[in-house]
Simulated scan of single mutants.
Amino acid sequence: MVTWIKPQEMFHSMPELSLLAWTAMLSAFTAKGHFASAKKTFDSMPERSFVSYNAMLASFVKFRKYDSALNLFQVMPERNLISSTTILTALANGKHLEKAKEVFDGMEERDIVSWNAMLTAYALCSGLEEGRILFDGMPKRNLISWNAMLTAYAQSGHLEESKFLFDTMPFQDLVASNTMLAAYADNGELEKAKSIFDDIQSGDKFSWTTLLVANVNRGELEQANAIFVMTPEHDIVSWTTMLGAYANLGRFQEAIEIFSMIKLVDSPDAPCFLLVLLVCSHAGKASIGRGYFFSMRVDYGIKSTKEHFSCMVDLLGRGGSLGDARDLISSMPYVPESLDYRSFLRSQRDGTTTPIQREARDQFRVDLDVRECDESSSSYVLLSSSLLP
């Protein structure tokens, strides 16, 4: 029978630890996602090589600790192409364009990875002109280079330049197609988005969800529903998109059906519960909404946000449960805002003056912003009418 020994146990059982063993342990911790252990290992090393420095540098980058990566890079006794390219990637992801340019300009040797990292830095920092100059001057390009430049144009809203670059690509992969699809969808070009989608040989979840969202945003609910039905694999984004579409239109039954399906095949998140509370409020389904509100915390362990509480105040007020609405405002773990008082006062018209009404009066007088003049005036009307005998 073979006994499995954990790498840590093997490491600590070694009579003498070599530099190779220390570096291997550091890399293993990084690969397994144990950053604290990787850092502790690096700090405990009696000696280090440029390989161990590069391993720690890669760990900082993997866990998005870009400033720490830069600090380590600056004190490295020696650097090579790997270390320079790694820090260049970190600076690009951290959007430190000027520092990335300094590193890139100071590199004695560059490969396609370092060129792409610098191009990505320009793309992420909206340096379109400089990025295009770099792109045109690259000694060699690969698909990552083309996609980086395409993404830079697309995310900046330069649709014509994006399409021209897309059409001139030597090979269009799914990343490129999805980039163009998202660019057209984000800019309301639904027909062009459909055209790109139809040309995709085999779309992924992002492709289907992007087209779904585009149709919902354009109010094409029937088409959106057809796309939703045809989508081969759903995720929480596609479920939430359809739930939101029905909720915003006040279509209670369809929204509840979607929410029920989410509970069967996935786990609803906080935005899902907010949308279902919203549709319950608009439909006057206080008891159903109350059940969802408690289920969110008890069954799914989701903490109620300020928005959930505000929606519940509105739901209870619309449903005539004024006492419960008042108690919820008083007891919720958030500072009540004018919206909460408006929701309550909209329903409180029985002529009584309660402590919560007096609190609302003071709240409106102190907190209502001049910029919300039109909205505030209606709040004062509600406030005064609720306080009149």
Rank of each mutant, 00 (worst) to 15 (best):
Q8D: 14
F11D: 09
W22S: 09
T23A: 15
M25K: 15
L26T: 11
S27F: 00
F29L: 11
T30Q: 13
A31M: 10
A38H: 14
M45A: 11
M45T: 14
E47Q: 11
R48Q: 05
S49Y: 03
M56S: 00
F60S: 07
R64S: 13
D67E: 15
L72Q: 08
L72K: 05
V75Q: 10
N80S: 12
I82G: 09
S83E: 10
T89G: 01
L91V: 04
L97G: 03
E98V: 14
F104I: 01
G106R: 14
M107K: 09
I112L: 12
M118F: 01
A123T: 08
F135A: 14
P139W: 02
P139E: 03
N142Q: 04
L143T: 15
S145Q: 14
K163P: 01
M169C: 05
M169P: 02
P170I: 06
D173Y: 10
S177E: 08
T179R: 04
M180K: 04
L181I: 04
G188I: 05
K192D: 13
K194L: 10
S195A: 14
S195T: 09
I200Q: 03
D204C: 11
S207R: 02
T209M: 07
L212F: 03
R218A: 05
A226N: 08
F228S: 06
V229Q: 03
M230Y: 04
T231D: 02
T231G: 04
P232N: 11
S238M: 02
Q253P: 00
M261A: 08
P268I: 11
D269T: 12
L277I: 05
V279M: 10
S281Y: 07
A286E: 08
G289A: 07
R290W: 15
G291F: 15
G291P: 05
F294W: 07
S295Y: 00
S304E: 07
E307G: 10
C311L: 00
D314E: 06
L315I: 12
G317N: 06
R318P: 09
G320Q: 05
L322F: 02
R326T: 13
D327F: 01
S331W: 04
S331N: 08
P333I: 12
Y334D: 09
E337W: 09
S338I: 11
D340P: 00
D340E: 12
Y341V: 03
Y341S: 02
L345H: 00
R346I: 03
R346D: 14
Q348T: 15
R349A: 15
T352R: 13
T352D: 06
I356E: 13
R358C: 09
A360P: 01
A360V: 01
Q363H: 14
L368P: 11
L368R: 12
S379A: 07
V381I: 15
L383G: 13
L387R: 00
